[in-house]
Amino acid sequence: MSASDAFGLFGCGLLGLAAVATLIPLRRLPHRVRYALMLAAALAVFVPFGDLPAAAYLRGVTGDVSVTTLVLAGAACIARITGGTPIGPRDLRALFWLLAPAALFLYPFALGWTQFDPYALGYGSVDFVTALLLVTLAAWRAKLYAVVFIVIAAALAYLAGAYESRNLWDYLIDPLVSVYALVRLLSGLRHRLSGEVTQPAG
C-alpha cells in the first residue's frame, strides 16, 4: 500500500470514527467502556471485510479528506472519549469563519462558474501562499493556536506529498468541513438572533 493510500484511508477512517463517537452517547458510559467501544469501532472501520475496509467505501464517496477535517475528526474523538475540549470554542469559531468564505470563494468558481479557477492557485501560486501566511499570522497574533496548528499540519502534509493531490487547497479544505462550518455558523447565528428576540428588555 502506498503512503498516500495509507494516509487517505486513515483520514476517512478517522472521519468514520468521529461520526460513530458523535452518534453514540459515550460520555454517559464508564471510561473503560468508551475505550472498548472506540476500539471496536476502529476495527470495524479499518479491518477489511471482503476486498475493502469500511474506510475505503467512505473514501470512494468523499475522496481524501483535508487535514482540517482530519484534525477536527481527531479532536471530536478525543473530546467524546475523554470529555475534554482539545480545540476551544473561540478557535473553532474562528476556524469556521475562515472556512466558510474560503469555501464560497473556491467551490462555485472551481465548478465552472467562470473562466477564473481559484483551485489552480493551489498548484503553485506565491500569492496564494502569501494570503495563507497573512491569515496564519493574524491567527497567531489573536492567539488562535489551533488555527495556526491546522495550517502548519496541512502545509507539512502538502510538502510531504501525503495525499494523492499536489494541490494545497486539498490539504486545507474539503466540502465536508465546509458544509460543517457553514451549518455551525448559521446555527450560531440563529441562536444569537433568537436569544436577542427572547431577551427581556431592560
Binding site: S125, V129, W140, V148, A155, L159, L168
Partner: peptide, 21 residues
C-alpha cells in the same frame, strides 16, 4: 506555545515558498 508555533509556521512557510518559487 506562542513562540514555538511562530517558529513552526515560519519553517513550513519557508518550505511552501521554496516549493512554489
Amino acid at each position: 506555545l506562542r513562540w514555538g508555533s511562530l517558529a513552526a509556521a515560519a519553517l513550513v512557510f519557508a518550505g511552501l515558498y521554496v516549493r512554489h518559487l
